[in-house]
Computed example of a mutant assay.
Amino acid sequence: MSDDESHQHNFEQASAGASLTYPMQCSALRKNGHVVIKGRPCKIVDMSTSKTGKHGHAKVHLVGIDIFTNKKLEDICPSTHNMDVPNVQRNEYQLVNIDDGFLNLMSADGNSKDDVRVPDGDLGKQISDDFDAGKDLLVTIISAMNEEQAISYKEAPKGA
């Protein structure tokens, strides 16, 4: 095989979008940051590092809360290994309507979004009640790893 042939690659798949996660060394993770534990995007609420053992690796014990389900997840990883960190985005949208259990939202640049469910529990009830009372609401949507959820809301300032 000539040098020229070894540089001719055929890529079957390519994506234009950003990756869902990126790698980070376990020892570089920080409390209140994000990490993927058992395939779920989590916020790190506690972490501790053990001393190096006879095999020479310090271990990091991570405790995380799933950002969508609020379930507690734990993982232990050697400090030199990489872990996936989810790309987490927060966006604010104007609430236009509530239709059949879904929020009809509009972004600041006028794009509509109607694929986010009304959140379960008190938050969903508060959003519905305030919207029914005629208030202009801004809803904060968190998105990571192809999942989205409303996490908070506030009343839009007058004249916005």
Rank of each mutant, 00 (worst) to 15 (best):
V63L: 02
K54C: 07
D100A: 09
R117L: 09
H57I: 07
M24V: 13
A150K: 06
D122Q: 00
L29H: 03
S152K: 13
R90D: 10
M145E: 08
D66C: 11
H61G: 03
G39N: 14
L138H: 07
L73D: 04
I44M: 09
V36Q: 07
H7N: 10
C26S: 15
M47K: 15
K154Y: 08
Q8E: 09
Y22M: 12
D130K: 13
I141Q: 05
N10I: 10
V45T: 10
R30I: 10
N32P: 03
T140H: 04
M106V: 14
I76N: 05
S19Y: 08
L29Y: 03
L95V: 03
S27E: 14
K51R: 00
C77E: 10
S152H: 03
H81P: 01
S152F: 00
D129E: 14
D136P: 03
H81Q: 10
L20Q: 11
L123R: 08
G101I: 06
K54A: 07
N10M: 10
L95R: 02
I67W: 07
S128I: 04
D114S: 12
D66P: 02
Q89G: 01
I37Q: 07
E155I: 12
K72F: 03
L62D: 05
K43M: 15
A160I: 05
R117H: 09
G33I: 07
A16D: 13
R117F: 08
A14Y: 05
P157H: 05
S50C: 02
S19T: 12
F68A: 06
G101T: 06
L137M: 09
A144D: 07
K113P: 01
R30N: 09
K59M: 14
N82W: 00
R40Q: 13
Q89M: 09
G134W: 01
E5F: 11
K125S: 05
M24A: 14
N91I: 03
A108W: 00
G17R: 13
K158R: 07
P86L: 11
P86R: 08
G33L: 11
C77Y: 01
H81V: 03
N91Y: 00
L62R: 04
R40L: 08
A14Q: 09
E5S: 14
E92V: 12
Y93A: 02
D114F: 04
K54I: 13
N91V: 05
S112Y: 02
V45I: 14
E92S: 14
H9G: 04
D132N: 15
I142W: 00
G121L: 05
D99V: 00
T21V: 15
H61V: 08
N146K: 15
Q25A: 15
K38T: 06
A18V: 07
K72W: 03
C42A: 05
C42H: 07
P23H: 10
H34L: 03
M145Q: 12
D100K: 12
T52G: 11
Q149Y: 01
I151V: 15
I65E: 14
F11P: 01
A156Q: 00
D114E: 10
P41N: 09
A150W: 06
V118Q: 00
R30D: 08
N10W: 12
A108D: 10
H57G: 02
N32Y: 11
